[in-house]
Amino acid sequence: MEPFITLTAVAAPMDRPNIDTDQLLPARFLRRPRDEGFGDVLFIDQRFDDEGKPRPDFVLNQAPYKTAQIIVGDRNFGGGSSREGAPWALLDYGFRCIVASSFGDIFYNNSLKNGLLPVRLSEDAVTAIRGQLHDHPGSTITVNLETQTVTAPDGATHEFDIEPFRKQSLLKGLDDIGMTFEHKQEIDTFENGFRQRRPWLFAEA
């Protein structure tokens, strides 16, 4: 995956809570192979009307947000289905970072594993930042993973938490499996012990 270090980009405000992964990527596109890309179907039912024309009221269709690489959402962004197509669709469309007051746990994990940075800020902070974005459409914010800070359009800096383990993977663009293989010996040893402790799990039906 592509490393994430720091990003200054246009941010799109999305005020509604509970933007679930069905909205991000409807189920009818889940069987598409990964290399075909999902950017064209991100938010498809909200971006387009029944005739396939862009809906002018949808934030991503508005001129100031055409180059947005950051979304500032609300509560429970990415809740619901475990479909990894949701972060894939966001990435393929051009997003690298989602700021929200809370995330669906599975979406949060899936995002980290694909180089899409989910940033948790307080409800007050996301509300304030969205307000600034509405007041000055097309303004940029800066997300710095090394310093774990978001700099809002008004210049205020908000710190965020991320586990050091995930931070390092993102900064270096590493996926889990390489690191896991470094623990192969430990897994083998554990598995032998586990098999002896819980033999019924390995028995034939």
């Binding site: 475990s82 479909r83 990894e84 972060p87 599975i106 994990n109 594993k113 996926d175 889990d176 896991t180």
Partner: peptide, 9 residues
């Protein structure tokens, strides 16, 4: 539940 990258893992 886990995503596809985790299932692969």
């Amino acid at each position: 539940g886990i995503g596809a990258s985790d299932v692969y893992h």
